[in-house]
Design a protein around this nucleic acid. Structure first.
Lengths: 243, 243
DNA sequence: ACCTGAACACCGTTCAAGT
DNA sequence: ACCTGAACACCGTTCAAGT
């Protein structure tokens, strides 16, 4: 519940080594921008995106709501900083293997960072103000694509497609109607279509239900990577799509 | 600004043919669920997602805020209904050509419906409660995939991937740092990385900037479809992805 | 059955004041 | 420079009351 134990503070004896003795360590750790952003991220991870209010975050930090505004311009900026903290977890340092292997590793690491903070990831693609870590991911991705032989124009298209797929993936829960029959009858909200009207869905319903199947992300990624290999092999038709 | 002219009402003489004369047509049209949903959608289209408040919608409909709650359970249900109205624009009736041609047409029509209402589309993937029109799109997509020869398990993966890509696409604006240099200096918010630290981005920056390039959606879609054709040609390796 | 006004329990943020 | 309490202008929604 209360994750302050992971924040370096007074109760951890190792942090007492070499500290400034003029400061009062009986109080909670000082309010800093990194601490605000870290606390906000763990709050969203634990209690969901809707639980992130400036007031709730302030009480979590044992401070007045307005104190936050000394370190953060507004809630928008706070979310931007949280996203960049999340993206700091992406491993951009893989340099073994060919471009395809490296690209796959990079996108997967990106996916895993988003999956580890899927509540925050839901807001991610909606409002993308890229920060330093986001820039770094972008740089590595584009560099690999240029190295693979894609033109600058095509490399930017590919980057967007990979980015959109990965960011979008976290936002989709189950797609089947959420109202169970009881609720549906109460409201007449979504008139249930009889199975004979939706035979294909009925045939695959056991696979459609529930959250994402493990490996589903990788399945789509491999689809995209296979497409990329074809494009590289026959560069003449470029980005042309049938009208 | 005021789009009531598109709503059948008293000022359109053609709607007077065959009307019930016992009713008072000097008042605005009666408050019905479809009219609420239509008005809400055009409000979001014109003024953005943030402008959709129950209060603003009520004044647009010249009615008290609480009157809406007689036709709609809450704001969540309203948004669900708006999404389904948007999805009603998707053409699910194309039956010419092979499965690949039909699938491409279907996904493109889906994309166009979202693009036509991109403000609403931003919220779409975040909270997907599928309605009758969404179900129909899903049914057609899955049916085409089964017809193509995909297994039920793989067909559901493919559906999700296409769905995620299309829904996610609308949510990404420009990905480059939004703060211009003036703002950046003011706040030190996103320390600008010098170009030599991001050579690849610098090399393709003219293509990364700004909103989506026309044809970018189709580029990614063709990547996915190319991958699908490979999967169908060599069905033995199924959804296996390298560890 | 449908609509209304007042009120409740929230928001993010501004402001003036404290140290 | 940093923090506070009170207040402002909003939200979605409940409630009791009207017709």
């Amino acid at each position: 519940m209360n994750d302050q134990s992971s924040v370096p503070g007074r109760s951890d004896p190792t942090t007492w080594v070499g500290v400034d003795p003029s400061k009062d360590y009986t109080r909670p750790p000082p309010l800093t921008r990194p601490r605000i952003v870290r606390t906000a991220l763990s709050l969203v991870d634990e209690k969901g995106l809707a639980a992130l209010t400036m007031r709730a975050l302030a009480t979590e930090l044992e401070v007045s709501p307005m104190a936050l505004y000394n370190h953060v311009r507004d809630k928008d900026e706070l979310v931007d900083l949280m996203v960049d903290l999340m993206l700091a977890e992406v491993d951009t340092s893989v340099t073994e293997g060919d471009w395809l292997t490296q690209l796959r590793a990079l996108v997967r690491s990106y996916h895993q960072a988003l999956a580890a903070h899927h509540e925050l990831a839901r807001v991610y693609s909606v409002r993308v103000r890229i920060g330093p870590h986001g820039l770094l991911i972008m740089e590595r991705t584009v560099a690999l694509l240029l190295e693979a032989g894609f033109s600058p124009a095509e490399a930017s298209d590919v980057f967007f497609v990979l980015f959109i797929y990965t960011a979008g993936f976290q936002q989709i829960g189950d797609v089947v109607p959420r109202r169970d029959s009881a609720t549906r009858e109460e409201t007449g909200y979504y008139p249930p279509l009889p199975p004979q009207q939706i035979p294909a869905i009925t045939a695959v319903s056991s696979h459609l239900n529930g959250p994402h199947r493990p490996g589903r992300f990788d399945y789509g990624l491999e689809l995209l990577l296979a497409g990329l290999q074809i494009k590289i092999a026959q560069p003449e038709k470029a980005a042309a799509a049938p009208q």
